[in-house]
Every structure is written in C-alpha cells, then in structure tokens.
C-alpha cells in the first residue's frame, strides 16, 4: 500500500505493507543508509531515528504508525544545532571506531541534549544505556555528550 512519509523535511510516498519496520523503508526503499540494522529487536539502538524530535528505534517502529510524523535521520543532523554540536564533539574526540553504531549513538545523544542541556554522567549513562557499541567507545561517547553540551552552551 502507498504510505506518505515525512522524512528529513521532504514528503515521500512509499509502497510498503503494514507491519514493515520504518528501518527497512528508510534503508532499502529510500536508500538512506546512515540508519543501521544491528539487531532488529530494539536492543542495540543502531537504527535510532527521530520521530517528532524524539529518538525511536526504527526497527520496531512500523510504517503505518508514522504517517503523520516528522521523521529525521542522521543524514540531516548537521542542519540541526544540537546535531551539529554532537557531530563536532564526536570529531574532536574521535569517538568512532568501526562506526557502525555511531549514527544511532548520535541520534540518541541529540535526543538527550534536547531534553537536558547539561546531563550528568549518571543521566548520560541512563539515557544512552540502550545504544550498544561493540567496539566499546563508551568513554568517548560519554565525553562526547559532555563536550557537545559545552559547545552548545558557548
């Protein structure tokens, strides 16, 4: 069935069956591959996108539930003030290793900073808990969120 999707500020009409995870529409149909497939069961966070500004796991978000929502992906984060700050912090600290989870980490970190401009270490750990990084870049993710908060404060 045809579904209208608002993604990164543009309206797309996609052909997908109900029950199709948003992840696969974004990746396979719209060919925006910054959003990653990691586990398919919302347990790693690699597929994190924003729905109306809040992080959601796109592997467990179904296409029929997003028709009226604004979906945002990593590809436009540099246009977002918080997104750009997080990306800058990630570059300054060279947070990434393999990088496969990092789109999701960044999307989640932006969600955190949108809610909480100056999160404590405990708040960062709690908010970022569901975003797995098999390279274990966690020290730098934590520092990156703090650095992004500093950039935004300046």
């Amino acid at each position: 069935m045809a579904i209208t999707l608002k993604l990164n500020g543009k309206t797309h009409t996609v052909n997908a069956e109900p029950g199709t995870p948003l992840l696969w529409v974004i990746r396979d149909e719209l060919k925006l591959t910054g959003t990653k497939f990691g586990c398919g069961v919302a347990s790693c966070g690699a597929c994190t996108v924003h729905m109306n500004g809040e992080p959601v796991r796109s592997c467990q978000t179904y296409i029929e539930d997003v028709e009226d929502a604004e979906i945002t992906t990593i590809e436009v984060m540099e246009e977002d003030k918080i997104g750009a700050a997080v990306q800058q912090a990630w570059l300054e600290l060279d947070v990434v290793q393999c990088g496969y989870c990092q789109s999701g980490q960044i999307m989640n970190a932006v969600g955190l900073l949108r809610e909480n401009a100056k999160p404590s270490v405990e708040e960062i750990d709690e908010y970022m808990y569901g975003n797995a990084c098999r390279c274990a870049t966690y020290q730098r993710i934590r520092a990156g969120v703090q650095r992004a908060a500093e950039i935004l404060e300046a």
Binding site: L32, G34, Q87, W90, D94, V96, G99
Partner: peptide, 10 residues
C-alpha cells in the same frame, strides 16, 4: 574515517 562515520555517509 571519522567525518563519514558521524554523518551517515560511511
């Protein structure tokens, strides 16, 4: 490889 890994282009 950092720049392309923070903006989804990698």
């Amino acid at each position: 490889d950092s720049p392309i890994k923070v903006n989804g282009k990698a």
